[in-house]
Design a protein around this nucleic acid. Structure first.
Lengths: 172, 172
DNA sequence: CCTGACTGATCTAATATTGCAACCGGTTTT
DNA sequence: AAAACCGGTTGCAATATTAGATCAGTCAGG
């Protein structure tokens, strides 16, 4: 029973699981965009992932325990992909990656606003977001707070920036 | 002047820069192992990176501004690689990745202890570590604290575990 | 039943990346 | 002079990635 990993270092192990061009981007779309079907992930992909790559990654992510796949009762050929607890706990990683990317790479304003809010909110907001994701993906019971979900807040901020920029753009 | 990136999303951009099997592992070795030469990175690699891949990644990391390369005055053919400020600011990302890997993947005790300390230390320790790295890689002036550097503390903890396990192993 | 759209998935063919081992000319050490 | 070390480079086979075409099963509307 030899390990298939090249070393037991946490960073190396994470790179063996997630160290590729697409895995984290797919998880991002499931997490922040609530994409749950193959076509949603394929056609609404900001970056234009190829269908066979998407299929291969989804299969791999299921095998590595980051997502689950179940049949969609509304359509016999449709599958619903959900994040597992393991993947949901990537929220702090994605938050830090987002913050770093926003500081050092040519991030557009619209697509950077979610990262900004997540960075400003800190660990407390990350926990609330993870709780929201557990409701959406793991059938956890929602807490009855009056507040909108973190996901709603992030998307509202995104839409706001989009609207602002559309208004500006029209005057040019 | 079109962008070469597929989208302006911070997570996508980071994956376009760092989304491969080796880049972060090389940065890890430079950061935590203070590997500064090609052969150090090649021969002391826990995971056994191939020389051509290492050469290609180093070149790419220089191009993307994550590391710099300068001649080693002690040896005409030797080069010294250093982390840039941009790469040093990956410390929080690596800390979160390490914490996640330690929770969810088969991390060995020795190689996990650094991640544990970094997670327990939190943002305050990360900042101190980044200051240490600025001294080592950017020629920043060291602060005159009586305390050992974070790097020394991490490595001391690692050696301690190695010694413990060696002692245990001998009785078997 | 027929149509047309949508589902997840598969195939092709061109290109890029990866891993491995051998090799290179120059430099330093012994 | 010989050996070891230096930062790579090269050739080669295997694998990964890509865009685009295609597939059969399923569904809703007529």
């Amino acid at each position: 029973m030899k390990s298939e990993f090249r070393s037991g270092c946490p960073i190396n192990l994470t790179m063996e699981i997630l160290g590729d061009r697409w895995s984290l981007v797919i998880i991002r779309d499931m997490m922040f965009g609530n994409r749950r079907h193959f076509r949603e992930l394929l056609n609404q992909s900001e970056e234009g992932i190829a269908s066979n790559i998407l299929a291969a990654r989804l299969k791999r992510l299921v095998e590595t325990g980051l997502i689950t796949r179940r049949d969609d009762p509304s359509h016999k050929q449709k599958a619903i992909y959900s994040l597992t607890e393991t993947a949901i706990e990537l929220v702090p990683v994605l938050a830090q990656i987002g913050a770093w990317g926003r500081r050092h790479l040519p991030v557009t304003e619209e697509l950077g606003v979610r990262a900004q809010l997540l960075a400003e909110g800190g660990p407390e907001l990350w926990e609330a977001f993870m709780d929201d994701l557990r409701v959406l993906h793991l059938d956890a019971k929602p807490e009855k707070t009056g507040k909108p979900t973190v996901l709603d807040r992030l998307n509202a901020a995104y839409e706001e920036v989009v609207d602002e920029n559309r208004a500006k753009g029209k005057t040019q």
